[in-house]
Nucleic acid binder design. Sequence first.
DNA 1: AATTGTGAAGCATTTCACAGCT
DNA 2: AGCTGTGAAATGCTTCACAATT
Lengths: 220, 220
Amino acid sequence: MSLTSREAGRRPRIPDVTIKRLPVYLRALDEAGERGVEIVSSAELARQTGFTSEQIRKDLAYFGAFGTRGVGYDVGTLADRIRRILGLHRVVPAALVGAGHLGTALARYNLTRPHPVRIEAIFDVAPDKVGTSIEGVTVEPVERLEETVRAKGCRLAILAVPAPAAQEAAQRLVAAGVEAILNFAPAQLQVPAHVQVQHIDLGLELESLAYYTAGERLSV
Amino acid sequence: MSLTSREAGRRPRIPDVTIKRLPVYLRALDEAGERGVEIVSSAELARQTGFTSEQIRKDLAYFGAFGTRGVGYDVGTLADRIRRILGLHRVVPAALVGAGHLGTALARYNLTRPHPVRIEAIFDVAPDKVGTSIEGVTVEPVERLEETVRAKGCRLAILAVPAPAAQEAAQRLVAAGVEAILNFAPAQLQVPAHVQVQHIDLGLELESLAYYTAGERLSV
DNA sequence: AATTGTGAAGCATTTCACAGCT
DNA sequence: AGCTGTGAAATGCTTCACAATT
């Protein structure tokens, strides 16, 4: 599971692990900015994020030289750069498929902390869900998926449907132009190579964590 | 983010990535078993899980030689072995802190597919939540956390509280004997080295996925 | 004096390739 | 004849260490 790095290389081929750390740096920078800090060193960012300062400098170096030697990084400038790299300088419309407990929680979570990724379309099969509104977004029947996803320009989607429904939903999302999927369904998705899938499977997470609680473990 | 591999080495030091793949193998084996399959090859498991057959054989080899050359793996035996390695051959009691939307979704999810990891204690600060019941488990006030976690022997916990409450909750869980935490709060937890933390941050996931939707991305 | 940016070294994980069993 | 188990090679990522720069 986890990010499947595609062969189809982006520019200089940036590791997926680097991409996953950028939002952490961004959050740290925003927090520093809110505290009125204007310049940070990689050492300071390291303290805030838990990564090493070398790693932070290496990650940033993939995209250019943003700092000033002997000084550090300008908080606002670096935050802007990272935001642009991630495409978060503008609103990112996202679609949510599945308005069950988890889907609803995700939609609400999204609202809680202001976020450039906005859930602007929600779909469900259940007739009693369709037409209701979650945080201001009306739940539509899945029949309208392609049309609405295309119309709203969603290229990112969250999949929170039961496992048996996951593959079909993924296919339809991809057909409608989605390029990245956050999948909560306990199912392996078959998608074209250009589509990035991040799989979060609560069952798998709990099962692997159980290993670390098993204590004195003698030879199997 | 992600699993922090501890220096404090377990036996021959097994990579965290391997531990994270074991539940995937287990699920594939269980599915094969339900289909009546009795013997599988690593190539067959590879097809089902999306990993390579070499990787599967290497992962399993960390724990012993479970297969038969020229034949493959006995589905039932291998599943049992993996279950034991992960500690899933018995019920694993888990505690859930935070009975908000997400926490409730997690508790319900847990019930949906029968699972050795069982949420047996739920805590919340909100007085209107305390005393209610989620899937048969009564929500208790956080004041009772240490006592109940200890009494039920929970060594695994799920944290679904707001960020500002996360660190204190983690500390109390650890003090009560918890050794592994699945953390959904957007906060970095400070825990002793022997405690394994898996951090799932929906905001960070969406932000990193946004990168892959940004399309033609010229030099930053 | 401090801190970035970066080649080179060091590790960790994956893939290769094949000897060893059944 | 087929498939596992595993050293060795390859790859990918992190850490080191220091020259470059302010």
